[in-house]
Every structure is written in structure tokens, then in C-alpha cells.
Amino acid sequence: MNRYLKKGIWILCAILIILQTVFAAFYMVPQQEGLRYLADAVKVSETGKILLSSPVLSLWGLLSRLLHIRAYTFLLHVLPFIIIPLCYAAYIFLVLSLPVASEHKPAVLFFICLLQLFGYQSETLVPVTLLLGWYTGYALSAHLFLPLLLVFLIRYLKKHPVRETAGADIPYEEDEDMKHKYLNSRNLGIALLVVLLLFTAVTFILNRKINNLHLATQNLQKSIEGKGEMVEFRGALGDEGKGYILVGGDGGISVLFGGDEADGPALYEEIAKYGQNVDNWYLKEGEQGAYEYCRQQGVSVSHVYVMQGMEEVQ
């Protein structure tokens, strides 16, 4: 590659990095999924208490508290100038470490800039996209820690170059080891890897099942409560069961019986706690005084059922 072209690509990459940083700080439309993570940092900033479930966001929250900058402003408008260049510095370390010809290295960095520009894939992946979710732990893991990890791996491989051939220069003991058809270190290494992968997969699947079960039971109580409630109406004097008010999960009201006219005011007060619209009212034949009173007070009833022929069986 031409020397000037190489220099030009480095300069282009520098311009792209600066533009991306400015874009993220001033022109990015805050995404709903990204803002959801930001709320943790706001909580830490305002209360000063670290959230162990969000260590990275807790760090930003504490920093904003220390600097007396509102967490929202700090994370969305100040932090891009720190995080994005830092991530690209890690990428530059990675590019410089890669075993490619030096003339191709700026092209690799340009490729990485292109990846970030076209990196948005879905709302779910906003926290991982550098230019949308730079303040999340996921973005830092993917764009800062992962490149640095690759740098260390490449440097390790360079310091400990792998043997090109096996055979003549292998020590006698290792040669004997490889002679065995099945029980040799290569196969054992592969078997260990397979076992590790299986174990990881099983752990992942079990963990997911346990988490789903936990979520299901966590919401079960709320779901049961959300299905509705039944309130017993004890009459004007509160000494005798005169009826029931059933409130559904969607807020719909049904009333069973209710008593006579004397119980009307008390029943109306109870019903009014849940609304003025009753979907269904089941009346006992000959006992409609409370119902009439409530109607006069403005309670609207969609359906009225009169139960006839009821007799005591026990």
C-alpha cells in the first residue's frame, strides 16, 4: 500500500472516531432500552448507594455524584468523550498487535469504524452497540475488555510460538505419548474441551430454567392478586353478611345481593370505592332496596339478574 494512502486512512479513521464521539454526545436520540439501564446510575447518583447488580452503572452514578453533574447529563453527554476514545484505543492496540502487514493495519481500523457505524442490529442489542449504549457494562465488555483480551492472547502466542512440525524434535517421552492410539495428550485435550463445552451448556440451560421458574413464581403471587378480589358486605350495622362485591383483575365490578333499603347508603359507600359502573348485579327476589338506593345515587348497572326460587337446603 502506498505510504500516503496508508497515512490517509489513519487520518480518516481519526476523523471518524472524533465524529462518532461528537455524534454520540450531541446528536444521538436516546433509545428506550438504553435509558432503562441509565435509571440505575441515576438511582446511585441520587442515593449514594451502590447497586451490586449494576457495578458499571453504579460507578458512573458515583462519579456523577462526585462531580456534582446530573447523572443523565454525565452519562449521555460527558461520558462519550471518555469511553468511545478509550474503546477505540483498545481497538488500535489490537490492530497494532495483529499479525498482518503494517500497511494493512489502518484498513483494519477503518473496518472497525465501519462496524460501529453499522452496528445497530435491534433494540435488544442497544446496550451492546457502542454508539448507543457506551455506558453499559455490555458495551464495555464487548468494545474495551474483549479487544484487550485479544491483545494479551496475541502477545502470548507471539512469545510462545507454536511448533511447526511434530516428530524429530519432540522429546522421547512425548513421542511415546503420541504413539498410543487413543490415550494421548491430543485426544485428552480434545475430550477435556468437549466436556468443558458440555458442562457450560448444561450450566447455561439449567441456570436459564431456574431463572424462568423463579420469575414465574415471583409473578405468580402478583398474578393471583391481580385476578381480582372479593369483599364481603356486612350490612349497615356490620353484623350480618348481606352480600359480596367482586372486583375483577380488569377493574370490572359485580355485586351479589346487597340487602334492603336500610343497607343502601353503606353499600353505596363500599361500591363507590371501586367505581360507579357495575357490570353485573345478582339480586335476591324480594330484596332489592339497596340496589334501588344505589341506582338513585347514580350507580350504573349493565346487567341485572334476579335469582328466583332460592331456598335454604340446610
Binding site: Q32, R36, V42, E46, T47, T124, S223, K227
Partner: peptide, 27 residues
């Protein structure tokens, strides 16, 4: 999301779900 990202004093009447977590919300 915008209001909760501005102040932790707000009490939401529903938990803001993730894109895949709507089904896990209570009824």
C-alpha cells in the same frame, strides 16, 4: 424511560420491560 432516567424519585405504575420481557410482567 426518559423520566426514570432523570430522577429515581418517580414511582412507575408498571415496571419498564425489556423488549423480550413483556410477557414476564404481572397481568
Amino acid at each position: 424511560a426518559s423520566l426514570l432516567a432523570r430522577s429515581s424519585s418517580f414511582v412507575p405504575l408498571y415496571t419498564l420491560p425489556s423488549p423480550a420481557g413483556v410477557e414476564e410482567l404481572p397481568e
